[in-house]
Structures are given as C-alpha cells and as structure tokens.
Simulated assay, not measured.
Amino acid sequence: MSPRRPILLLAIGALALAGLGLRDWPVESRKAIAFAQRPLSTYGLTLTADGQASLRLLPFPSFSLAQVRIADASGPTLIESRHLTAEIDPLAFLTGRSPVGGLRFDGGTLSAERAAWARPLARIREGVAGGGQHPPRLTLSGATLGEGADIKDIGLDVAWPFWSGAVEAKAHLTWRGVPARIALTRLRPSDLFEGQRSPFAAEATWPGGGLAFDGTALLPAEAAGSPSLSGRARFQTNSLPETLAWIGRDAPLSPSPGPSVWKAPSRRRAGRCPGRFCGSARATP
C-alpha cells in the first residue's frame, strides 16, 4: 500500500473528528445549568435559563445556555443575557479547583442598581479574604447598563488567573454617545480585601482626551464606601468644558486656547484629598 494512503486516511479522520468537535451537541438544560452555577453559588447567586443548552468540545470544551438570568439569592436580577458560555477547564480537576474556567455573556443587560450588587460583591470580598478560590474569568460583549440611556455597547474582560495575585481588566463602552476604552492592571484584590493597600495602574481614553493613574488603592472598612487613592495622575483633553459636560459636570471656565493637561502630585499626606485627585490644570497652546 502506498505510504500516502495512511496519511490521507488519518487526515480525513482528523477532519471528521474536528467537525464533530466544532458541532453543538444538545444536552439536558438541568445539567448545563448545574455546571455553570457552581462558581456562582459560592457568592449566593442563582442561574436560570429559558433556552436550549448545548455542549461543544472544540476549540475548548464548553456548555452553552440561551436566555439566562443571574440573580442574587435575595431576589434582585443582576444580569440578563441572550447567550451564556461556561468554559470547562480540564486542568482544574487536577488542582481541585472549580471546573468552570470562564463565563462569557453575549448581549444582554446589567442591573444599574448599585444596591443590587452590594451583597454579591461583599461575598466575593469575604471569600477571597478567607482564602477562597478566585472567581472565574468573566467576559461580556454587547451589553447595556440598565436601559442603555447612558452606557451601552459594553465589552468587558476580567481575568484573575489562579497562579497570579493580580487582576487584569479591559473594557470598552459607549458613554452618552462617546466611545471610551478602559484598562486596569497590577491590582491585587487579596491585598485590598485584607485591608491593605494594593498597587494598580489604570487608563481611560476617549476621542477627546484621556486619564491615566498609577498608584495605590485602599478599600474602606465598609463595602459600600469609596476607595482611597494615592499616586500620580495625568489628565488631558482637547476641550475641558466639553469633557466636563460629557461626564455631567458644570464648567465655569472660559474657553481654553488649546488642549488642557493636568498633573497630580506624586505624594499626599494621609488624610489629604481621600479618594479624589488634587492638582491644577494648565492650558498648552
């Protein structure tokens, strides 16, 4: 037999297996919901789905659910999504972690009620501070906040690998008709939840300007409070009045002759300007 024939047969077999692996196989919704709910129940969240469920083996094994809702155990709905994919992490079985490696939401609505998120966030804080597992990777695409009057087209990717102490997050959204991008790196949630300061670097950009911050953050004792920030910040904009109007602030200033650049001091004594920036703006021609 020609040596080419076995190779050809193996290639055909591999293609056939790949085709089967890329296919969505219907599964019982109850089993898919139970699998996707595992990491959520740790934080008092419940998952329901009205659509069909399926299993896909390639490129990574995952369960898919349609028309899902995630709610707090006390009742408020936090996320409504057209489609949810729960990715299976085979290595998690070897390390004793949750087999859900990531949750991906396509389309849907996020609750705009701050109070609705308070209890789940407090549970995450308590769980991580107590040495619990990291939450799974969270990915959103095409979501809106509330009715989408102010914030829509949300894309979010939050990753906290089990081998790393730092979180990385990237997001893009449309806020009041203006597209913006946000990036967060070096943040260590375990330090924050244990009452310690955590380093972080954040950057937000939009067509008319940008804001960058490099420093440390400290969470208040109460989960509902605002964090205290210290470090170096840089803010620049092509039009300060337009930027302030965009974020909902008044601009009692005369028109600037050019782009405005604002720099914050690198250090502040404790108790000075908690949770906000201190400095002055200057106009550059």
Rank of each mutant, 00 (worst) to 15 (best):
M1S: 14
S2D: 14
R5P: 08
P6T: 03
L8P: 04
L9N: 00
L9G: 00
L10A: 15
A11M: 08
G13P: 01
L17A: 14
A18C: 10
G19K: 04
L20Y: 03
L22R: 07
R23Y: 03
V27W: 04
E28K: 12
A34S: 15
Q37K: 03
R38F: 00
R38L: 11
P39D: 14
L40D: 06
Y43P: 01
G44R: 05
L47T: 14
T48W: 11
G51T: 02
G51Y: 05
Q52K: 08
L55M: 10
V68E: 11
R69M: 15
D72N: 08
D72C: 07
T77I: 13
L78T: 08
E80S: 15
H83D: 06
L84F: 01
T85Y: 03
T95S: 14
G101A: 04
G101T: 12
G102M: 13
R104K: 06
R104E: 02
G108H: 05
T109K: 14
R114D: 10
A115G: 10
R119A: 15
P120Y: 05
P120F: 03
L121C: 05
A122Y: 00
A122C: 03
R125F: 01
E126V: 01
E126D: 13
G127W: 00
V128A: 11
V128T: 06
V128D: 01
A129G: 08
G130S: 12
G131A: 13
G132K: 02
P135A: 09
R137L: 06
R137C: 02
R137D: 06
A143E: 07
L145V: 12
G146I: 10
E147P: 02
E147K: 07
I151C: 13
I151Y: 08
I154K: 02
L156W: 06
W160V: 07
E168H: 07
T174L: 13
W175K: 15
R176D: 12
R181N: 11
R181M: 05
I182R: 04
A183D: 12
A183M: 03
R186L: 04
R186H: 08
L192M: 08
L192E: 13
Q196P: 02
P199K: 07
A202N: 01
W206K: 05
P207D: 11
G208Y: 00
G210E: 10
F213G: 05
L218P: 11
L219Q: 04
A224L: 08
G225R: 08
P227Q: 10
L229K: 11
S230M: 02
G231R: 01
R249F: 13
P252Q: 02
L253G: 02
S254G: 12
P257L: 03
V261I: 12
K263G: 08
R268K: 10
G271V: 09
P274R: 05
G275E: 09
A281R: 04
A283H: 11
